[in-house]
């Protein structure tokens, strides 16, 4: 028990709130959390999990020799462990190639998930692909939030013709199917992970800009804003200290829960060949490696099941995890939706 004067009567902590209780009692929410924790584990422990098969460039950039990599990357006492876990060089995201053979090889002890067409180690791609997926999700949401805050903020704050103009822009971008527009943008920007992420963000922001504008208009009508204005708060202070902090919350929550949809778009673009560079650990691209081995290759149906099975399961589960979590949070925030 904390002292009563610190906790005002009737004030509850977040984990005692009704919303959190609703969330906690939802088994689907827990399923989502477990799935995401699994992928987070894969992502964080990627260097340790793949210590015995890191590509040569990655080892060089980490300053390790192959013989010592396995122990170094699995002992937390070693500085290389922390470097590889939290700031791995870009070369570690390249899937090592076992051979250059176009024919996939079935799973065996050293390569438990098999080898894809082109000699790519599927296990390595799945583990580091989890990192790529989180990276894409978080970064795209970040860019989307920045664009949406600028556009929605300007529209909500100034109103008038600017509001009208920006909201029409929102309507136009929103009226085109996201994947189609993202495909065109990605094509113009060219290949590369960062470029793809910018293309996706340029398509995903409108709905959040509109949401933020609505919230700002709502907050602006509150009495405490007029009060702050009356005591002489300037426009900037009013906006950044009073309006924005009170309006931005729902947008941030809903946008972060949209990572599932973002990863769908990103993996689809990668599958089409508009994603990261060839050989980058990315699930969508791994499925595109599998393209010619899907339907009845060489008269032996399902012989090369592993080339498409693992990456497609990884994408589906990852997105499912986010959507289960997102659904549960939306239910908890708005119980009427159940």
């Amino acid at each position: 028990m904390s002292s009563p004067d610190r906790d005002a009567p009737g004030r509850e902590r977040w984990y005692e709130s009704k919303r959190f209780r609703r969330f906690r009692r939802n088994p689907l929410a827990w399923a989502g959390v477990v799935i995401l924790l699994f992928f987070a584990g894969l992502a964080v422990l990627a260097p340790a999990l793949t210590a015995d098969r890191l590509p040569r460039g990655c080892l060089r950039d980490l300053g390790l020799v192959r013989s010592e990599a396995r122990t170094a990357l699995r002992t937390p006492a070693n500085p290389a462990f922390w470097r590889a876990t939290f700031a791995p060089p870009a070369s570690c995201y390249k899937i090592p190639r076992v051979s250059y053979s176009p024919v996939p090889k079935p799973p065996r002890a050293k390569y438990p998930l098999g080898i894809a067409s082109g000699g790519y180690d599927i296990y390595y791609g799945i583990v580091w692909g989890a990192r790529t997926s989180f990276y894409i999700g978080v970064l795209v949401v970040g860019i989307v939030l920045v664009i949406a805050t600028v556009v929605g903020g300007l529209a909500g704050l100034f109103g008038g013709w600017l509001d009208n103009l920006l909201m029409r822009l929102v309507d136009v971008v929103y009226s085109i199917p996201g994947l189609v527009l993202a495909m065109v943008f990605a094509s113009i920007f060219g290949r590369g992970l960062i470029k793809t992420m910018i293309a996706i963000a340029l398509v995903a922001w409108p709905i959040y800009a509109r949401m933020l504008r609505g919230n700002i208009l709502q907050v602006k009508a509150q009495d405490y804003i007029s009060a702050a204005h009356a005591v002489g708060a300037g426009h900037l202070r009013l906006f950044f200290k009073h309006i924005l902090p009170n309006a931005i919350g729902p947008m941030i929550i809903l946008a972060s829960l949209d990572i599932g949809a973002i990863v769908i778009t990103a993996s689809t673009l990668a599958f089409l060949g508009l994603g990261a560079d060839v050989g980058y650990a990315d699930w969508g691209q791994m499925i595109s490696f599998a393209r010619s081995w899907i339907s009845n290759p060489g008269g032996e149906p399902l012989k090369y099941w592993f080339v498409w099975f693992w990456p497609s399961m990884a994408i589906a589960l990852f997105v499912l995890g986010w959507n289960l979590l997102g659904d549960a949070v939306r239910d908890a925030l708005d119980p009427r939706s159940r």
């Binding site: 599998a290 149906p301 589906a316």
Partner: peptide, 25 residues
């Protein structure tokens, strides 16, 4: 519904091509 909503179209399409068209013919 949540599972259906979470599946990327190309993943579903590939499963159908591999299992139903490739596997079952």
């Amino acid at each position: 519904a949540i599972v259906g909503w979470s599946l990327p179209t190309f993943v579903v399409a590939i499963w159908l091509v591999a299992w139903v068209y490739g596997g079952l013919g």
